[in-house]
Amino acid sequence: MLEGWKKFNFWVLMLLVPINIYLIFLYAPVEKTMGIVQKVFYFHVASAWIGLLAFVVVFIASIAYLANRKVQMNHLALASAEIGTLFISCTLLTGPLWAYPIWNTWWTWDPRLTTTLVLWFMYVAYIALQGGGTAENRRRFAAVYGIVAFINVPLVFFSARWWRSIHPIVVSGEGIGLTPKMRFVMFFSIVTFSFLYTYLLGLRYKGISLAERINRLKAELSQ
């Protein structure tokens, strides 16, 4: 079942990715004031979406692991965390590329930016906690941390927003008036990235499971 899904996913991606690139660079109109740099927006938003989605998967898989202790759930959570880190890193890297020419600053403590950065830190902490270790207790701890960290995300966002709403906002919101064409391309990118995420998740999940199997076999052989 998993193999069939992977193959299907692969061909969907082969179809969607070229269309998406065409849509981003040729179909979507060039933004009047921002110019060509605005194109990074389609990658940026889609990566941010995947970063958040991946964390939801970590959260659910962590609860499932604590509930019935299936190793697969732990592998799924770890795979999702790794891919989420990758996409959040993309978000954090593409953001400044756009922000510097538009806002004239590489970074600002906007609630969304702050939350994304804290999310990145929590992902890194989660992966460090698993630490490549295969011991049962590491899985359990990672699951506990995954749950607590996920609950922390909205708290970070709302406290950061609240703090900003009291103080004067240095840089106002993104202020992108999206035309219908742009909005369509944005949603298309999100769909493409979601397929990319599930494909990578499947690959990484298998990779982690195989690595664990090798470790187990090695341990059995050395006895």
Binding site: V118, A128, V156, S159, A160, W162, W163
Partner: peptide, 16 residues
């Protein structure tokens, strides 16, 4: 590990 795990969770507290 301890500070790496601790500090991200403390951000809302820090702001408050």
């Amino acid at each position: 590990l301890f500070p790496i795990l601790l500090f991200p969770l403390l951000i809302p507290l820090l702001i408050g």
